[in-house]
Design a protein around this nucleic acid. Sequence first.
DNA 1: GCCGTTTTCGGCCCGACTGTTTTCAGTCG
Length: 574
Amino acid sequence: MAPSNSEIAGLFDQLAELLDIEGENPFRVRAYHNAARTIRSYPKSLAEMVAAGEDLTELPGIGEAIAKKIETIVRTGRLPQLEQVLKRTPKSLLELLRIEGLGPKRVKTLFYLLKIKTLEDLERAARSGRIRELPGFGLKTEELILNHLQKHALQEKRFLRFEAESVAEAILAHLKGCPGLDRIEVAGSFRRWKETVGDLDILATVRDGGEVMARFLAYEGVEEVLSHGSTRSSVRLKNGLQVDLRVVPTESFGAALQYFTGSKAHNIALRTLAVKQGLKINEYGVFRAGERLAGATEEEVYASLGLPWIAPELREGLGEIEAALENRLPKLIELADLRGDLHCHTDATDGQDALEAMAEAAKALGYEYLAITDHSKRLTVARGLDEQRLRRQMEQIDALNEKLQGIRLLKAIEVDILEDGSLDLPERVLKDLDLTVCSVHYQFHLSAKKQTERILRAMDNPYFNILAHPTGRLINQRQAYEIDLERIMQGARERGCILEINAQPERLDLDGEHCLMAREIGVKLAISTDAHSALGLNLMRYGVAQARRGWLSKDQIVNTYSLSKLRRLLKRTC
DNA sequence: GCCGTTTTCGGCCCGACTGTTTTCAGTCG
Ligand SMILES: Nc1nc2c(ncn2[C@H]2C[C@H](O)[C@@H](COP(=O)(O)OP(=O)(O)OP(=O)(O)O)O2)c(=O)[nH]1
Ligand SMILES: [Mg+2]
Ligand SMILES: [Mg+2]
Ligand SMILES: [Zn+2]
């Protein structure tokens, strides 16, 4: 089985971290990390590119040496350089790196001077007081390590952005109205709309001193203060989430927001460009020979480098700065571009609200249309619809459409894809619908080849329109099933089928990286909430964000189309 | 290890906080 891009990337990240511990040139270490990032998000399979004899040094951050290593990985499944390093430096040291306060230098010291390889070794050494004796360590560090080992398991996981959102709102509410406070924004991965966040990064600006920092530390949700200074503090909340607050003067708002939004790779790329232009960027502004040129707004910061403002969702260090320089940033899709939602449930199956309530909610959102897609009969736990019940719902929708003003309900179904690739309802009823959303809801453990063929076979059905949550993953809960997404996307494009960006915060399926692939292939997508209540229709912004992270414009998203244009697209048969 | 209309060699982002240090290294953002 050919290695996936993310597996290849994982090998380079591992190599980088181990070399870092060994004290290798940090720029070489960074080069491996950079390559890993490029590889992980690259929209085409590197294994296939190698097989086709393509030149990998075309990719940013990949030169002769790394290209050769990738070829070796693809051909043999192994990276000999990594195996060499592992003979000297055990893999278990990477667990030690995860402990806060332990970086490559200290892990190296622990390993070389005390032969500490594992978390257990570390705990023993700390308990017997041997850590504090080491050069560069002390009593405080030893205590920090012991303290951390006790709760290590607890704080590994990243929070869903959606979960972090309400936490952020509470903290902002706590800080607002504080004397001296001017502006306050959530930055970091939260602002870039990553699906999960490692922490919350909050930026505040103050006019003169003020009490913002003290007020932050006094927040009732704070479990532990990890560090505090006059411009930056970090805390851990009772729920386990870390929060960083950065405070700068108001005239630095733009520069600080740019800095704190990141990503780290984007910042480094931007600052490197500045250096080339004889400028310096930090969180206080843009400077030429000590003179401050910009910093009040983000636009100003980017403009001082000759760049247009770059949307936070694009700031992942994946070529956005080069694109900005050449004026080929995409015009990203926006929430306001959407004219309807093509996947939702009612109380006929596992939804909470009735048809009419769903219609009213969609209308309130300014939509032109809403597709009603209850489950099909195989999904018995959701009381899925059989042909008869579906026909009855279709009649209800017809009647309701007579009555409704300003919103059109579409007759549809979320129909199960059966194991043999057939659909769970007969064509004689599917043909009378406006559209179908088709889903894999069982038999997740097929081989990639079988799962892919199952779905492609389903797409051969002329009434197949949209493939719902194409990978089936649930963030922090369930892996994606094995599938060849590139083939699925190509197959969908050829057949005139559509893939879904499911906006449920724990799904986000397709995700931003998949969207990059969809952009490359040119397959059409639908952004859908899969709402199980009227309120659930509001989560569209999560799906839009993934599309934006995938550099997508509205022309590739079918639910930005007018109803008549959409209908033409959905009609695969003449 | 990568990269280049300034360079094919010699650079590679920049600053805050902590603890251990006796002037700054390490880690983190
Ligand atoms: N210039 C610069 N900025 C950095 C560096 N590390 C972090 N930052 C900035 C950019 C990050 O987005 C921001 C917040 O740092 P975090 O560690 O919280 O990262 P981020 O929020 O991007 O991801 P996360 O989901 O928290 O893991 O700080 C760095 O090494 N250099
Ligand atoms: Mg963060
Ligand atoms: Mg942070
Ligand atoms: Zn659904």
